[in-house]
Design a protein around this nucleic acid. Structure first.
Lengths: 228, 228
DNA sequence: TATACTTATGGTTAATATGACAACAAGTTT
DNA sequence: AAACTTGTTGTCATATTAACCATAAGTATA
């Protein structure tokens, strides 16, 4: 044990990475390749360098794991049960990220042998308190998606209103009325209708929309409500 | 530096303690009596014992500083800018508490020479990033009070509807309509009208109400909206 | 070619919630 | 007795909402 550590002791970062695939909400899990928990699944996590902010550590962890940057990433909270890890006392700071699965290839790196998307309803037993962290993150996502248009981060750049609604349905766990959803979401003026339609569908093609981040900036400054 | 620490290194707890006095929202600050920051004001904080959860550490810190227990206390988040303290790298976990000032006497303890309530609009320059933490806590309080009836923790056990409204006005920083406030708050069925009235007021005495925690439990299970 | 089928999109309507404000009640002070 | 202060109740036009219904625009099937 040296006096000058380059990393923070007893503190870690754990990230919940949400994705959306075939209408199903998923989370990215990794299989540990070394240590006590070898062979077990958990949330991707990491440590904090001495000179690095915790947000930056979360960004770096995410980059190391998924290769992606400029992502919606938000702190959940700190998890600090003294027995959350049996062998030593570590406080972890949870983050969650929303990524568009089409844009990124995820590859296992460093101390993990495998990285895999799990449907949110089929999460296996995870190491430590990672199931608890994931539950907390899901609840946070559910409330957050009602107050800010963060769901767009899970979708491709161009999407239909029904795709967006199905995303809300999947996250909130309840059915929505398409007519009412359409009216409410359009009333917010956050979406820009494109001159394009869906391709290769075996039914009437829906109009594609895009999320307008300029409008979002303007609206979020004076605060807005996103209740569905 | 020994191998076996009894406290967690490089992690601290800081508490925002909100009170409500004469219609004004206040926060409890302490004046440091030792160390680099001697003589300066800051949020009451402390360290985490090895065998203690972070929530328990926050409760204990609060007890040591104010003598109070069984308090509404909620974690804000972790603050982890590497330069938030100039001399060494410490990540702090912020908490906030709402207390009824009538019920407790606050006394300075341990490493502080003074503990004092400051009006939320007259907060002095605080040590480290404590002003930032306080701002974050206030914003959290503002959004939280719209989704859960936590405001009751700031009031005496029995209160009038107008007192409750003034609390909301003070926290949200805007005026409310007394008629509409009354209608909305009573519709939630969270308040129990008592057979008592205000005493010693130089105008018509208002009916006193009480917060019913049984009803709260039932309602919060199926979730409710507290928009004012 | 006609018919069924699927999803998209655009109403309709009754019930409810909201904001703004007026009116009256019950006390105290002048 | 009149003015004043705060509490309490009521009104009303408008906005919002949930729950439907109807039609449009395509594809698939017979």
């Amino acid at each position: 044990m040296t006096m000058y550590q380059t990393i923070m002791n007893s503190i870690s970062i754990d990230c919940i990475i949400f994705g959306f695939n075939n209408g199903v909400l998923e989370a990215l899990l990794v299989k540990h390749a070394i240590g006590d928990s070898k062979g077990e699944w958990g949330l991707p996590g990491g440590i904090i360098n001495k000179g690095e902010s915790i947000d930056a550590a979360a960004q770096r962890t995410l980059r190391e794991l998924t290769g992606l940057e400029n992502i919606f990433l938000e702190q959940l909270k700190a998890f600090g049960d003294p027995k959350r890890i049996p062998t030593n006392r570590v406080i972890t700071i949870g983050y969650y990220a929303l990524i568009n699965r089409e844009e990124y290839d995820v590859k296992a790196g460093l101390t993990v042998s495998e990285a895999k998307w799990y449907k949110i309803n089929s999460i296996p037993n995870l190491i430590y308190d990672h199931n608890e962290i994931l539950d907390f993150g899901l609840k946070k996502l559910q409330t957050r998606i009602l107050n800010a248009p963060i769901g767009f981060n899970l979708l491709p750049e161009k999407f239909t209103l029904l795709q967006l609604m199905h995303l809300y349905e999947e996250i909130l766990g309840k059915e929505l009325d398409k007519s009412n959803f359409r009216r409410k979401i359009l009333k917010m003026k956050l979406l820009v209708a494109l001159d394009e339609k869906q391709q290769d569908v075996s039914h009437r093609a829906a109009k594609l929309y895009q999320f307008d981040s300029d409008i979002y900036e303007k609206l979020s400054q004076k605060g807005f409500n996103f209740e569905i």
